[in-house]
Amino acid sequence: MSAPMQRSRAIAATALALLVSACASQIGAGVSQADAAPGFLWGLWHGFIFPWSFIGSLFSPDIAVYAVPNTGGWYDFGFFLGITVLGGGSFFGSKSRKRD
């Protein structure tokens, strides 16, 4: 593939990512400053148990995979870490593993 073609694809992908991310928003009612609102540690836990919560949510409307309202950014960061790091997201997605 030629360099101009690769560059135009990169620009198109960046433009698409910006367009899609512009649609993201959080409802003010979804963020709480109360002491009892789920924070970073609850987000970490909810991210870790996400696969099981998702399966359960398919069969029961009482099970949710994401707590609302929560503390906002810190809950989201914990949720992300729980899914990717604790859940093995990047490890299990790798194509090759080193064997000793």
Rank of each mutant, 00 (worst) to 15 (best):
M1E: 01
S57I: 06
F91P: 05
W42A: 15
V20C: 12
S2H: 06
F79Q: 03
A37H: 03
F48Y: 09
I55S: 03
F59E: 02
T84R: 13
G28P: 00
D35F: 00
G89R: 07
S94V: 06
F80E: 05
F54M: 08
S8R: 04
S32D: 01
T71M: 05
G47T: 09
T14S: 06
W74P: 01
G93R: 02
W45E: 05
A10K: 08
H46W: 12
I83K: 10
N70L: 04
M5L: 14
V31A: 00
S94Y: 11
W52K: 02
G39H: 04
T14M: 13
G73H: 00
G93S: 12
D62L: 09
G88A: 08
G28C: 02
A17E: 06
G39I: 07
W74M: 15
A17M: 14
L58H: 02
W45G: 03
L86T: 05
S2W: 05
L18A: 11
A64Y: 03
L86C: 07
G88R: 05
T14D: 13
A15E: 11
V31I: 14
V68K: 08
A10Y: 07
I27T: 09
A13M: 15
A64E: 12
Y66P: 01
G28N: 07
D100F: 13
D35L: 01
W42Q: 09
Y75E: 06
S21M: 10
A24E: 15
S8L: 09
I55N: 02
S90Q: 15
Q33R: 09
G87K: 00
I11C: 14
L41S: 13
S8I: 07
P61S: 12
V65T: 11
F80H: 08
F79Y: 08
A15I: 13
F54C: 01
G78P: 12
G47L: 07
F79L: 06
S25D: 15
D76V: 11
A17C: 11
I55E: 06
F40R: 00
Q6H: 12
V31S: 04
D100K: 04
G28Q: 07
P4A: 13
F48M: 08
W74E: 14
G87Y: 02
L86A: 07
W52S: 10
V20H: 09
Q26T: 13
S21Y: 12
F50L: 10
R97G: 08
M1L: 00
N70H: 15
I63S: 08
A36H: 03
C23F: 15
Y66C: 05
L16K: 00
P38E: 01
D62N: 11
Y66E: 04
P4F: 13
